[in-house]
């Protein structure tokens, strides 16, 4: 694995803070009704993305996830302005305004969505890895899912085939404690999701995912195994989301005290503590980062606000690769 250095920590701090503030901005503009639909935010889970990116080979490795998916493409290299614009439903968005919050994609940056059906993306992730194995590309796919998706049949069918065919994929369960409002304990008679891997003889384990170092180390081991042709791994990344499942969530299923407990081990605070303890940056330098993050978020908002909405024809043009597909009429002419 690449060494974790002063530069890593400073980069982590700035990027994780940017993701946090980006999501906060989305919550704000959602309340202003500039962004509609569902909105699922990543606050609290940032160490997973930071650690994963550190372990990945960003020239070829791939990522796919569910609908809590705004910041992962940014981490993979997508211009955050385009992600913000997508949520605004603008033509400059990553899907030209057709996908919205739950469906962010970037072929260029190997981010394969952005999927709205819980667990639906799991076999897709194995399929991406299948193609990389087929074409001998030496690339690995990180397939993310939530603790709720761990109870879908799609996981079990996919784990079985991925292991049977030794596909270069890492299954990463982001266990944030709740499938919407249902705690992990209420979804199965066990709470250690990582043990599901044992049934498939798949290397598996749990990871303290509030700490990007721990995530990077576990991810590195799993990615190396996949790249060597030894097949998939199944990681349970123990994390927490501060905000509700989506914006309409009153969060009656948990206490404020529980949220506060997790905020004490906040991933961004943990990174900042190391920076301060090791004197990687002065207070002024940290303030400068904070200021830069704020400006970057403001630029995204400005870009999204000022971008045009898409033309009606895009709704048709994007459905089929065939250029002259004869769509049926749906209204009187």
């Amino acid at each position: 694995m690449k060494k974790i250095t002063k530069k890593t920590y400073l980069n982590w701090y700035e990027e994780m803070l940017f993701w946090r503030k980006f999501e906060d901005k989305l919550a704000q503009v959602y309340i202003q009704q500039k962004v509609r639909g569902f909105l699922h935010l990543y606050n609290g889970q940032e160490a997973i993305l930071a650690g994963s990116l550190h372990a990945m080979d960003l020239t070829k490795d791939k990522m796919i996830t569910a609908y809590r998916n705004h910041v992962q493409p940014i981490g993979m290299g997508v211009d955050p302005k385009r992600v913000m614009a997508e949520l605004y439903g603008k033509a400059t968005g990553t899907s030209q305004g057709l996908g919205g919050s739950m469906h962010i994609f970037s072929k260029e940056h190997r981010f394969y969505g952005g999927h709205g059906i819980v667990g639906g993306q799991i076999p897709l992730g194995a399929g991406l890895a299948f193609a990389d194995q087929y074409f001998k590309r030496d690339a690995v796919t990180l397939t993310f899912l939530g603790d709720g998706a761990a109870r879908q049949g799609s996981l079990h069918e996919t784990l079985n085939m991925a292991m049977l065919w030794k596909l270069p994929v890492v299954f990463c369960v982001e266990n944030n404690g709740y499938a919407m409002g249902t705690s992990v304990a209420r979804t199965a008679n066990h709470v250690e999701i990582w043990k599901l891997g044992l049934g498939y003889d798949m290397p598996c384990g749990a990871v303290d995912a509030m700490n990007p170092v721990k995530v990077a180390e576990a991810m590195d081991e799993a990615i190396k195994r996949a790249r060597k042709g030894e097949g998939p791994s199944f990681l349970e990344l123990k994390t927490y989301r501060y905000r509700g499942h989506s914006m309409s969530d009153a969060q009656l299923y948990r206490t404020k005290e529980e949220v506060e407990e997790y905020m004490k081990i906040d991933p961004i605070t943990q990174v900042l503590d190391v920076i301060q303890k090791k004197k990687y940056a002065t207070n002024e330098e940290i303030k400068a980062i904070d200021k830069r993050v704020k400006e970057r978020v403001a630029e995204c908002e400005k870009f999204a606000e000022e971008s045009p909405f898409p033309e009606n024809n895009i709704m048709y043009d994007t459905v089929y690769e065939q250029e002259d597909y004869p769509f049926l009429a749906h209204k009187p002419e």
């Binding site: 394969y112 897709l124 194995a126 399929g127 991406l128 890895a129 193609a131 087929y134 996919t158």
Partner: peptide, 10 residues
Amino acid sequence: GIGIGSAMNG
């Protein structure tokens, strides 16, 4: 699903 994922990747 594996088929669809592979179709996204060549």
